[in-house]
Write a protein that binds this DNA or RNA. Sequence first.
DNA 1: TGCCGCAGGTGACAGCTGTCATGCGTGAAG
DNA 2: CTTCACGCATGACAGCTGTCACCTGCGGCA
Lengths: 200, 200
Amino acid sequence: MIKVVIAEDQTLLRDALATLLGLERDIEVVGLAGNGREAHDVVRRKDPDLVLTDIEMPDMTGLELADLLRREESRTRVLIVTTFDRPGYLRRAMEAGVSGFILKDGPSADLAGAIRRVMAGERVVAPELAARAWDEADPLSDAERRLLRLAEAGLDSAAMAEASGLARGTVRNYLHSAISKLGTANRIEAARRARQKGWL
Amino acid sequence: MIKVVIAEDQTLLRDALATLLGLERDIEVVGLAGNGREAHDVVRRKDPDLVLTDIEMPDMTGLELADLLRREESRTRVLIVTTFDRPGYLRRAMEAGVSGFILKDGPSADLAGAIRRVMAGERVVAPELAARAWDEADPLSDAERRLLRLAEAGLDSAAMAEASGLARGTVRNYLHSAISKLGTANRIEAARRARQKGWL
DNA sequence: TGCCGCAGGTGACAGCTGTCATGCGTGAAG
DNA sequence: CTTCACGCATGACAGCTGTCACCTGCGGCA
């Protein structure tokens, strides 16, 4: 019997997945969580064989959860299921030591199979992603990333300077650098592209 | 037996919902679709009692689908299920004559109940939304909306002018007007706020 | 010790953005 | 017919953005 915890912020999908997996003879859903932190608690309490987790969740992302479990040397394997086929996510997931990475766009029939393959020691990656994974490395520095996130929210340079403790000029230098690395015309496009690549 | 078609772009959720509803004694899932246009075709072919649809889908949104079915005087009722609790969506859905509007954050147990209540002639609205629905009217003009969408994509005023066939100055006037209506500091914040309210 | 690379900063400048006053048609209301 | 509102446009101006050359201090490292 494979003991599974499901972490997913959309209640409807979470419950539906639980029902779906519950129908499998060899899988038992032992816990549910609506965000990463909750998932971490549940994993500690229930000690499941595998945690099936979304990436984008409030409080703590699935990638952070995976990283945390790896650092704690938890025996629970991590299987990421996400909407977002952003190349950067897969890379970060691999670095966080996850056992599998599949997409919400894939057929649901594959899900139980993916879980079984992970438990058999295989590393499962959605085939449409495997090829694209190492396409492009994230060229951004931490400072650039942080500022792009602020730019996305509509802050101007002065506000970003205050928010990040840098000088205005430095903020503009970092943004310039990000803009030219990403080959865009302005900070907004740069932020969009970075987010779309999963670098943000 | 209530005949249902499910329109949802995430395969995993679509399949999971189909499985979930298939377990109900009085509900039969007669068709699946991954976008609005496909859903429209399937509804015409299968003539279901109800179509359960997401809003944000490629090709045609759930709101457009609802509108189309209403104009065609289809007997199929529409139940919207969406992640996005943006006030503007509910209003537009009501104007499109939908029979129900519930959230993916709601418990899955309510889903079959909502379907039955819709088929009993009730109009079902997620309780957390009902109150907020008429909070704020969309203050934007069509021109403002269109330009905010372009601003979101990172175009500058000159590019928007070209894209929309307006003069640069006029573009800036519209953006100014949108910015002041929304009480933000710049076009980026304005676009964010409008999107978050469901006005975009 | 001296040199290098690197994060962070300054100042200048052209071009873009946000704001505002103002003008010009056109179509609906009086 | 006049008046008025409305969509669209123009021009001016302060302030912000993107670009660039160049400076400073600090931690390696030979």
